[in-house]
């Protein structure tokens, strides 16, 4: 029972970070752009969310997080398209710039200069608990999981619907063959910006929800989100394969939940010794590197086999 509770307590985070994975799936797989804005937009979503929540509007804070992320995405998009900055550099520029902006945001309250802010129970999850009169650690996990699941399903539906609309089709084609999109009288710059805006809006929402789930927002919560998202996308693809955008975003969420559970398992069992938790980012990088290398390794193996057979 304690085991089950332990893994259940990791489920909400898996779902929330699934939104982040969806965002990364959209920029990486659909738009075919390596977007490094992630840690900036995630942190921006988190700090904007805590500021709005402290005014007593935790639900509105989620929308604020979406807007914050979308804003970051538009900046990166404009840098890439209008100003012709290399996509990787454009992301790095926005991310670095946002770090300072986030710091400024943290010192906006009467507390003065600080790098973290507590929600003081002004979170969506606390409100739901209050509404239902629920207490206790186990129950809290259940409430968090249900609320997160609801929001993730809602967002999933919206994204799937979006990619079936005309503008969604244009965004997809932009990642596949931009020349053809332009030849079809569609403004490629605009579709790229829209795509990056949506991707980072999801990441901003993930930042807002993740910090609400924690109960506080810290400048460092965003660290490692990019590699986490990549790992989630890749694990998702390993399970469901590379198919259309609908299966794609779903697989990203699935990958995120699974990854979170794997991490929970590793830490629980102390697979890497006493300090397993410290090696999480390394594990993450290892998973991503190995999975990305598999096609090349397979090819090398096939080639050497062929060479041997020829002899």
């Amino acid at each position: 029972m304690i085991e089950l509770q332990y893994y259940l307590s990791n489920l909400p985070d898996g779902l929330i970070y699934g939104l982040l994975a969806m965002g990364i799936y959209i920029s990486l797989r659909i738009l075919d752009i390596p977007d490094l804005t992630t840690e900036g937009s995630f942190g921006f979503g988190a700090v904007v969310s805590v500021l709005v929540s402290l005014q007593g509007h935790p639900v509105l804070a989620l929308f604020a997080g979406i807007l914050a992320g979308a804003f970051a995405g538009v900046i990166t998009g404009c840098l890439q398209t209008k100003l012709k900055v290399h996509p990787v550099l454009a992301g790095i520029i926005t991310m670095s710039g946002l770090y300072s902006i986030n710091l400024v945001c943290y010192s906006l309250t009467e507390k003065g200069a600080t790098t973290n802010l507590s929600y003081d129970k002004n979170t969506v999850f606390e409100k739901v608990k209050e509404l239902l009169g629920i207490r206790g650690q186990y129950e809290t996990s259940v409430v968090k999981a249900v609320v997160s699941l609801g929001i993730v399903i809602l967002v999933l539906c919206i994204i799937v619907w979006f990619f079936r609309t005309h503008i969604g089709l244009c965004v997809r084609a932009t990642g596949d063959n931009p020349d053809m999109v332009s030849a079809s009288s569609i403004n490629v710059d605009r579709t790229k910006i829209i795509g990056l805006m949506i991707a980072n809006a999801l990441i901003g929402l993930a930042g807002a929800m993740a910090s609400q789930s924690l109960g506080y927002s810290d400048i460092n919560t965003a660290n490692g989100t990019l590699i986490y998202g990549l790992a989630a996308v890749i694990i998702g693809e390993a399970i469901l394969g590379k198919r259309g955008p609908a299966i794609g975003v779903l697989s990203a969420v699935l990958g995120s939940v699974l990854y979170k559970l794997i991490v929970a398992f590793v830490i629980r069992q102390n697979l890497f010794g006493e300090k397993s938790a410290n090696l999480m980012k390394f594990t993450c990088a290892l998973i991503v590197a190995i999975t990305l290398a598999i096609p090349a390794i397979k090819q090398k193996a096939a080639e050497s086999k062929q060479r041997k057979a020829a002899r």
């Binding site: 005309h166 089709l169 244009c170 997809r172 084609a173 596949d176 063959n177 020349d179 053809m180 999109v181 030849a183 079809s184 009288s185 569609i186």
Partner: peptide
């Protein structure tokens, strides 16, 4: 032949996109 179409999208999706014009 690769230049005029989006390879990972279906025939009808490609046509629908071009029909935007």
């Amino acid at each position: 032949p690769m230049k005029g179409t989006a390879p990972h999208m279906t025939i009808e999706e490609n046509l629908a996109l071009a029909y935007t014009r």
